[in-house]
Write a protein that binds this DNA or RNA. Structure first.
Length: 417
DNA sequence: TCTGGGGTCCTAGGACCC
DNA sequence: TCTGGGGTCCTAGGACCC
């Protein structure tokens, strides 16, 4: 009998990914505090003497958050998710670059391909990180994945010129934590015996799945570190956090996690949303809102078509000026895909929300996705197809809350006639 | 001038069905 | 009548993640 194989799971996280891609393009910025974020259209200007002129944070006025930033910028206390205006107070002279997702996606594909050439069992976790199963990689068991992780780092650097940090442990939960321990350009290998010394001293919020709310609640019980949670009475965790989450907290704090590497998954929903430059009112800004609404539906329809899906559940999302979020959705008798049908369905949802408050954000979402044969009808439809007039909705009757009559919806949207 | 955009998963109640 | 018990679907909201 061969000895039981230990699972060897790697988590690979690109270092300051967007910022690092920008530094490849603008190498003169290397070593400086650089921030990516804010609005579009702020390209660096090439000057007469050949040097480039960059916008700085102090030049910026408007809404927006930091998407990511260089380690030099982080030294000022700037971090991703921070409002640009706040970041400008901390580091007014930091260079501000606009986001260029197309470019980041190109580099994302490149690094993932480079990894795949070394180790094919990969789980995509977004544009800049992946899990990799090293368990069955030849030789990996011998050194706990160290050589494999080294070759992954080399392959990524050769393919992109970018560094990454890798954690290798028996599971995804620990590897995710481990990849952060030695950033940037790090490599950390841990096994179960390292948990007390390396994992338990860390803040509970370092665990993927313990967010701000759960961390605050834990802190209220004087549970601050992962070790605190591990030492807590499981019965107490179950009672306070519920059966499911409480049990998970206990297991996670002990470093237990059986989740497999998921190499493929179908999308569950596709959405588009936009935050306005200023808060808009359904009546006073009707034209602007209507145009924006139409645009969102068009972009969503385009995304669906490009990815080969139709949708049977259309929803909207609003964020009011006070930051409250409401959503409404409607399930249709048959899948749809074109912008006009999406707009009509989303319009019926809009009639069910309060539109007397100013809106900060408007979004449109497509759920219950149905895969399409190339450019043809849906491959499968859960609801019965009821022919071309399938626009009518099956909403359970609920009166519109809106005091405003047909806010920014055209008369043609009114299906209640 | 605080607080983007794109996702996933979970919970919970009511409708509806057997 | 004093009150079943599953099961699924739909909807809304919220936590969390990148």
């Amino acid at each position: 009998m061969p000895a039981a194989r230990r699972r060897l799971i790697a988590h690979l996280d690109m270092d300051a990914f967007y910022a690092s891609v920008e530094l490849l393009r603008y190498p003169d910025l290397r070593g400086q505090p650089v921030v990516i974020g804010g609005s579009k259209d702020r390209q660096p200007v090439r000057q007469q003497d050949g040097t480039r002129r960059y916008a700085t944070l102090s030049d910026y006025a408007g809404r927006g958050v930091i998407t990511t930033c260089t380690y030099e910028a982080r030294a000022f206390g700037v971090h991703s998710g921070m409002g640009v205006m706040k970041a400008a107070r901390l580091a007014p002279d930091a260079v501000l670059l606009p986001v260029d997702f197309d470019e980041y996606r190109r580099y994302s594909q490149r690094f993932k391909e480079a990894v795949r050439d070394v180790a094919p069992v990969i789980e995509d976790r977004g544009i800049d990180e992946i899990y990799i199963d090293l368990t069955d990689l030849p030789g990996a068991q011998g050194d706990a994945g160290q050589a494999a992780a080294r070759s992954l780092k080399d392959a990524v650097f050769d393919a992109t010129g970018l560094t990454c940090s890798i954690g290798v442990t028996p599971n995804k939960l620990l590897s995710k934590i481990a990849s952060e321990l030695d950033k940037p350009d790090g490599l950390t290998l841990l096994d179960a015996t390292d948990i007390p010394s390396r994992i338990w001293p860390l803040a509970a919020a370092k665990v993927n799945g313990i967010g701000p709310k759960a961390a605050a609640k834990l802190a209220g019980f004087d549970l601050h570190t992962i070790g605190d949670v591990a030492a807590a009475d499981p019965g107490f965790l179950l009672a306070e956090f519920g059966r499911s989450y409480g049990a998970w907290l206990h297991a996670a704090a002990h470093g237990r996690d059986d989740r497999p590497i998921v190499t493929h998954r179908e999308p569950k929903s596709i959405s588009r949303e936009t935050t306005f430059e200023r808060d808009l009112h359904a009546v006073r800004d009707r034209a602007t809102l209507s145009e924006s609404f139409t645009r969102l539906c068009e972009r969503l329809a385009n995304d669906l078509h490009r990815k080969g899906y139709a949708t049977q559940t259309v929803g909207i999302k609003l964020r009011y000026d006070d930051f409250r979020i409401v959503t409404r959705d409607v399930t249709l008798p048959a899948a749809i895909g074109d912008a006009a049908a999406i707009r009509q369905a989303a319009g019926s949802c809009l009639k069910r929300v309060d539109l007397s408050r100013r809106l900060r954000l408007l979004g449109v979402r497509a759920g219950t996705l149905v895969m399409m044969a190339d450019g043809a009808a849906p491959l499968e439809t859960q609801g019965k197809s009821i022919g071309p007039k399938a626009g009518a909705t099956t909403t359970r009757a609920s009166p519109p809350i809106s005091q405003v009559d047909l806010p920014f919806i055209d008369e043609s949207d009114d299906t209640s006639a």
